[in-house]
């Protein structure tokens, strides 16, 4: 579905007079291969290059070196530009800065309008997308009167209405409160499981990645760790070096293991933790 081949992205830093100060390599030799229907999480601290990487999947940025393929189409091939943007939808961080319409349903219709979908079908798509994210009852509302989580769900509906095969979530929860975060993650998981849409979730909240099929951890522009959530979260100390943490339960299990209890690595949930302790007790 998505593939990067030795992807490098550099940008030139300039001082106030416009002289070149230096070159920053934001993405450094990244090779990814995401299969259709997968739920991928990309972790990394602020400034690790994860958002820059994400913008390549939607042809918002182009590689300095290497190549990016979306469903077999090279992003640098201009003739496929609009196909790529339709197939790989994007949800951004700030909910206010990606809603264009003044009424929820009009915003959801914005993508299909741009694609030239006939009016009747736009209405069908809008209704179906709002239903998918559970925002149908707000279709006539002004986005300014919604909570952060609701606004993000409207943004997600706006992407679904374009019938994408893949959605890239670029830190969709960074500006939300815990309730809003849950709403968005729930919506993302549902899209993956029910609609079989490929999901790329970029985040630095550890609790959000435990449901992913695979996790990539980025640092200084390259992929530092790859694996299932369990494999990644077994390496508590390594994650800390990369300015990241692990969910509290995982950390607790890790600490207890260090203190001598025979617990496995990478305990992800509370249920699992209690079960493991029960096993030891017996």
């Amino acid at each position: 579905m998505l593939r990067t081949d030795k992807l490098v992205f550099e940008y030139i830093r300039r001082d106030e007079e416009g002289n070149v100060e230096g070159i920053t390599r934001a993405v450094d030799n990244v090779n990814l291969d995401v299969k259709p229907g997968e739920f991928i999480a990309i972790l990394g601290h602020n400034g690790s290059g994860k958002s820059t990487l994400a913008k390549h999947f939607n042809a918002l940025l182009y590689p300095t070196e290497g190549e990016v393929f979306v469903d077999g189409m090279n992003t640098e091939d201009d003739s496929h530009l609009w196909d790529i943007r339709q197939e790989a939808g994007m949800v951004f961080q700030n909910p206010d800065n990606q809603i264009i319409g003044q009424v929820v349903e009009e915003d959801v219709g914005f993508g299909p309008e741009n694609m030239g979908v006939p009016t009747q079908e736009i209405w069908e798509r809008v209704e179906e997308s709002l239903k998918t994210v559970g925002m149908l009852q707000f279709r006539k509302s002004s986005p300014n009167h919604l909570s952060g989580g609701q606004k993000q769900r409207v943004s997600i509906a706006g992407v679904i209405a374009m019938h994408p095969k893949c959605i890239i979530f670029d830190e969709p929860t960074a500006m939300l409160d815990p309730n809003g975060r849950k709403e968005v993650i729930r919506a993302a998981r549902a899209l993956n499981q029910v609609e079989n849409i490929t999901i790329i979730l970029i985040t630095h909240y550890m609790e959000e990645v435990i449901y992913a099929d695979r996790v990539f951890v980025m640092d200084k522009g390259h992929v530092e760790m790859t694996g299932t959530p369990r494999e990644i979260f077994s390496q508590v100390d390594r994650l800390k070096e990369l300015r990241l943490g692990v969910p509290q339960v995982t950390l607790l299990a890790h600490e207890l293991k260090k203190a001598g209890l025979p617990l496995p690595d990478g305990v992800l949930t509370r249920e699992e933790f209690v079960e493991e302790l029960k096993k030891i007790k017996r």
């Binding site: 918002l60 943007r85 339709q86 994007m90 951004f92 700030n94 800065n97 990606q98 264009i100 374009m162």
Partner: peptide, 14 residues
Amino acid sequence: RANDLAMAMEARCY
């Protein structure tokens, strides 16, 4: 905001 919005609009095929 203008920058973000322009990017979001492009991403939605505007």
